[in-house]
Design a protein around this nucleic acid. Structure first.
Lengths: 237, 237
DNA sequence: ACCTGAACACCGTTCAAGT
DNA sequence: ACCTGAACACCGTTCAAGT
């Protein structure tokens, strides 16, 4: 029997915490925050919990990020990097804009309530700047007045983020993604509208179906189409 | 000297806490929450602080409201009551819709970041139901397809709330309402855009002014006008 | 039904002290 | 520069006990 058989030896003390303790750093911290957002949403992110993933206390994070808000912004920037670049050679600006909008919307939906972080976020990442440049160029190239193009980009971003965030909130109001519960929730609202006195609220009562229809993707697409058509109408040839 | 001269008597003990201790109740609690929102914003509202205004502890509130979220919703409903009713006899639906939108936007701006509570809020108050009925009626009466009218109302509300919320957030990013600080903040962004390599980002660099112009009310109005025009274009006569 | 004190299980951030 | 334990000043919500 030699010392090389370590099977029944207690682990040496300096190896007790051997699990590959991840080292800190801006990106590692932001990535952990994004992981928590994906799993449980923004409210589940706390400095303590992020720090715990690195086997340390919350104070350690402050050497890398200014505060919690900055950490969440970094996590959002990571998510932005998932976006596919806008194709360079594309002439149909309306189709490009629609596809880009749907892509952003889908990305936001993949990350729980991350859309809440889109508000007042000024694009600074490389990828976002490039998308902005492309879409702006396509619009102006097609004859959209520059001021209209600039405002349209802002408003479009606002609409995409707001719709994604609202969609998440509605999802929260009936626990899980259970479609049965969703039906019960929206059905309850429908019944409420339908139960209003028809003499005082004829249009609401008479259009209950339309008011509840396609609360999700369909309504979003409708708004998108109408907005893009609105931009197109500003082109004077 | 009779007992009726109370000037030099110590206050009787049962009058020690005489200050007219406000009694609890759903509305009183919600009104206090709204007061705090107006003064310091939503994040300043805490169960403890609201309770303190009634000289009691946070547990007392739970006899009146389910939880903090419900309390904030009640506060928002109070703010909604400030809205002026949509005029009954009005034929120009586009003007009515524009005025109503601006009214809601202004109300939200009066209450700090209360716009954050507009997301996923289903109108239930008397006043809001009546506005919905009127605007819906005006649109449908003018020939807008019911489904378009219903979706448009949703999207319009989303846009109004999102813009107001984003406006508040931008206001936060430079401490107070100091226009000098605001100029420095937006000037910094402008300089950043202008400093990008012009060969890679020709459209951004070439349209810095348009990208920064009228970040506030002007851009909001533009989006509103375009959206209402979009609705109008769905009328087939 | 309404109200309360105390407790539970958390927060974000700062600070002095270490390396 | 980076990391840490401990502390500060808070949170929302629950619960047993009171009226």
């Amino acid at each position: 029997m030699t010392g090389s058989s370590a099977g029944d030896l207690p682990p040496p003390p300096y190896r007790a915490g051997e699990k590959p303790r991840r080292s800190l750093g801006r990106e590692a911290i932001a990535r952990e925050a994004l992981r928590i957002i994906d799993a449980e949403g923004i409210d589940a992110v706390s400095m303590r919990r992020v720090a715990a993933a690195f086997d340390t206390g919350p104070a350690s994070l402050y050497a890398h990020v200014k505060n919690k808000e900055a950490l969440l912004r970094l996590a959002f920037d990571l998510a932005l990097e998932e976006l596919e670049p806008v194709p360079v050679a594309a002439d149909d600006w309306q189709a490009v804009m629609l596809r880009w909008s749907l892509g952003v919307h889908e990305m936001l939906q993949r990350h729980n309530d991350i859309a809440k972080l889109t508000f007042a976020h000024i694009p600074s990442g490389e990828a976002m700047l490039e998308s902005t440049e492309r879409v702006l160029g396509l619009m102006i190239g097609a004859g959209v007045p520059p001021q209209v193009a600039a405002w349209s980009l802002d408003i479009l971003s606002l609409y995409i983020g707001a719709d994604a965030y609202e969609g998440w909130l509605f999802g929260q109001q009936f626990g899980t993604d259970d479609p049965v519960e969703a039906e019960a929730f929206f059905g309850g609202i429908k019944d409420y509208f339908a139960s209003l006195p028809a003499d005082r609220f004829p249009y609401i009562v008479g259009n209950v179906a339309a008011l509840m229809e396609g609360g999700g993707e369909e309504r979003f697409r409708f708004g998108l189409d109408m907005f893009i058509a609105g931009i197109a109408s500003t082109i004077t040839r």
